[in-house]
Structures are given as structure tokens and as C-alpha cells.
Amino acid sequence: MATITIDIISKLFRSRAYPEGLLSLDNIRFGVADREFVCLVGPSGCGKSTVLNLIGGLDRNYTGRIEIDSRPLSHDGSHPVRVGYVFQEPRLLPWLTVRKNIYFALESIGVPHSEWRQRTETWLEKVGLAGFGDSHPHELSGGMQQRSAIARAFAVDPEILLMDEPFSGLDELTARSMRQQILELWDTTRKTVLFVTHNSFEASYLADRILVMSPRPGRLRQEMKVELPRPRNYESSQLFEFSVQVTRLLTHGGNGM
């Protein structure tokens, strides 16, 4: 059981180039229902990662309010529920092996020691990295590192999954199988998922609902319910047409409204 309610009035980034602050999010309001799969799409630099960061409690410098299960994020940014976060980059600890990286997350989040091995092996296998548990991140390709990070996020058995373009570094074949994996997982365990991507086809394939953001300052341009029946098929023409619609929204601004 986990819902997310986002009500961001504004998010400014102050920097040397913009001492007054650069408005990067403007009036972002949406909710993610329990067990809902929501995709956030938008052009590069529109603030998708920033939204995820705010929800993740990593940046508390904004005006607005974010609630998880109707409770605001606590003062130190920690969550009332377990969160699995796949960052845009792998963010593995380079001095630990892949297995130890996953153990680190499991231990941090309080999973009993007896379950570490089983969970880690299961997830490494599911992301196609069986046998690479003892490798260090620098011994893996970029895509393999990203898959390790995905395994880490799933292994903690999160109630909320935040994913930031997790498959953008993978080849289409691997990405497809990962998408299927995610849907399978979501189907069996029904997590609440907020998934960032700029790939409208991917969004259409995965989501219950798609939120389209405008270029900076990020605003919500459009919300689309994906009414396609599941399981969805890559070859289905409905899916394709739907994704074309999403792409049109992304590229031509308000045309679709």
C-alpha cells in the first residue's frame, strides 16, 4: 500500500550562472495511486530527474508538499515506506562487488541477513547477470552496471519504485526483456511505480497513465490514460498509434490538447 501525492509549487536551482535561481519546476501536481504504473515523459532538461529527486527525499529545497501515504516526507527526507530508486546513472559503490553493492542496500534498508543471498542471486539472475556477482562495477559494461542497479532496486522489495530512464543505456533486445520483467514483477507484487523516460513507445507499453512535461520550466502539459489492455504486445498497432500520439505531444507542444 503506497500512494504518492506531489504538489510542487516551484523548484529553483541557484547557481553561479543563475544567482537569482533558475526555475526548473513550476506547478507540478499529480498523484500516483497505490499499485499504479505512471510514466513521466518530457524533453531533456525539463526536470524529470528533479521530480524524482524531490520524491526520493534527496533535495528538500523547494516550495510545495510531497506526501507518501498521506504523510509528508519527514524532515530528514526519510520515507515511511521502502523505496527502490534506479538512478539515471548506475551509482554503484566502485570498491564493492556487484553482490556486495546489493548487500549494502539490503543491510541499509533492514532486510534480515539470512535473506540477502537468496534475494541477490534471484535478482541478478532476473537481470541476466548470474555469475557476475563477484565482479566489480568497472569490470562490467555500462548496460550491465545499470542492470546491477536495477537488481539492487528490486532486491530491497520496495513499496515504491522510482526509475529514471533505467533502460536508456541498453540495447533494444535487452531493454525489451527488462520491460517485460518489470511488468511481470509489477503484476505479481503490484508496486507503485513512477518511471521516467523520453521514449514514448516505452511509456505506452508500460504505463497506466502517462504524464507529459513541457520543456523548462517543467510543467505538466498533458495527462493520458493508457487504456490498452494488458498484457500488451510490442507488435500491436494500437500500441504503436498510441505512442505516436505521445510523441506528437512531446514534440509539438499543445497540439494534442
Partner: peptide, 16 residues
Amino acid sequence: QRLVDMARVFRASRWR
């Protein structure tokens, strides 16, 4: 800092 953030998301204590 990105690695520290990662640890925070997974609820690692300040000490950890």
C-alpha cells in the same frame, strides 16, 4: 555526493 544520495535512498544511517 550522488553515491551518498544513493545510500540515503536505501535508508543508510548517517553513520553508515
